[in-house]
Simulated assay, not measured.
Amino acid sequence: MKKSIIIALALLLVGCSNEQPTNESAENNDGGQGADASVSIRNVEVEVDDALQATITGEAALAGSDLYYQLEQGDVVLISEAKVELDSNPHGLSPFELLLQVPEDAVSGDQAPIVKFYGKDQSGEEVNPNYVPINLKSN
């Protein structure tokens, strides 16, 4: 019985080794979009003025992808996909600021408009979507 417990613990320790896999394909990719593309968004703040101009600030960490966004309300796309320009910082968080003009008809909608930030993998599929609501009811 003790032998089987010791063997199980040894297998568990071997399986949980701290070796990190290398990501040579993402580093050698000319397009900036690797197979293991990822996007992380932090410290996002949204301010909307009386003219429905939304200012969105935050920080993004990218790996093997660029940062994209689109403005949606329910199933309707209000602003089509566009790329967010970031300062070059390959190993940490890069600050960003985005100015969006929210359409007038979005105010009367049942749902709040949502900015979807995401990256893309090599095949062009969205990865790591982040959803940020824009509160228009206080305007």
Rank of each mutant, 00 (worst) to 15 (best):
I56A: 01
P133Q: 00
Y69F: 13
A112G: 06
S4E: 15
R42P: 05
Q122I: 04
A82F: 10
V77P: 15
S108N: 09
A35L: 07
E24I: 10
G31T: 13
E19Y: 15
G34I: 11
P129R: 02
G31L: 15
G119E: 03
G31F: 14
V46N: 04
Q70P: 07
N139R: 04
V77A: 11
Y69S: 00
E24Y: 08
N135H: 07
S123L: 13
E126L: 05
A60R: 06
L98R: 01
A112N: 06
N18I: 10
V76P: 07
P95F: 07
T55A: 09
S17G: 10
D66M: 05
G109A: 13
V77L: 07
D75V: 06
A51M: 11
E27F: 15
E85R: 09
N29G: 10
T55K: 12
T57M: 00
A26W: 08
F96C: 01
N23M: 13
A37P: 12
E72F: 08
V115C: 00
P103H: 03
G64A: 10
A54V: 04
E126I: 08
P95E: 14
V77C: 15
N23L: 09
I79G: 00
V102R: 03
K3G: 11
Q53P: 00
A61S: 15
K83Q: 15
S65N: 13
F96D: 01
V115W: 02
N28Y: 04
S80F: 04
A106T: 06
D110S: 13
A37N: 11
G15K: 13
A112C: 09
A26Y: 01
V84D: 01
A51W: 04
N43K: 12
Q122G: 00
V132C: 02
K120Y: 02
I134A: 08
A37I: 06
L98E: 00
P21M: 07
A106M: 03
P113W: 05
V102A: 05
L98V: 02
N23E: 13
V46H: 07
L12A: 13
S88P: 02
V14W: 06
V107C: 08
A54L: 05
V107K: 14
L11D: 09
L93Q: 07
K2V: 15
A54F: 03
K83Y: 05
P95V: 06
V102Q: 10
P133K: 00
I134L: 06
